[in-house]
Amino acid sequence: MTGKPGMTKQESRGLKQRRDAEHSIRPAVDIFENQAGIVLRADMPGVAREHLNMRVDHDTLSIEGEISISMPEGMEPIHADVRATHYRRSFLLSRELDSGRIDASLKDGVLTVRIPKLAEHQPRKIEIRTA
């Protein structure tokens, strides 16, 4: 826990939350569904694997990441499109998805998340027997 001295834990936490809300980037995503489940792709350039954090809490999938970029000493900004170093976005999952088998990969700053459907919700082909 970091916070200014003389602050209660709550105050310090409230400050941190406000700061995070103001300073996080909402990554652009593509989301589609196929027979196996849902696929989500998110642009998170500058995030290394060890600075990516994904979790499922009840039915909410949260994705967070920190940008790590090396910068020389004594640098002054000339232009800045990216003003924050934190990505954050969350999604509500639905009941037929199997949150225990989520698979994620990160490559060249693009995160791919696969959320499979529970086995009983996968479409099954119904065989029709000829009489």
């Binding site: 642009d43 350039p45 500058g46 020389p72 232009h79 499109d81 990216v82 060249d108 700053g109 693009v110």
Partner: peptide
């Protein structure tokens, strides 16, 4: 020549006495 916020790719530029550093946020591009 700067483009509106949200343009792709996002770019940051910083300068120090020795060099200029340009960071191009270009995910998923070879």
């Amino acid at each position: 020549r700067a483009m509106a916020a949200g343009s792709f790719p996002a770019i940051n530029v910083g300068a120090s006495p020795e060099q200029v550093d340009v960071y191009v946020f270009a995910p998923g591009i070879a």
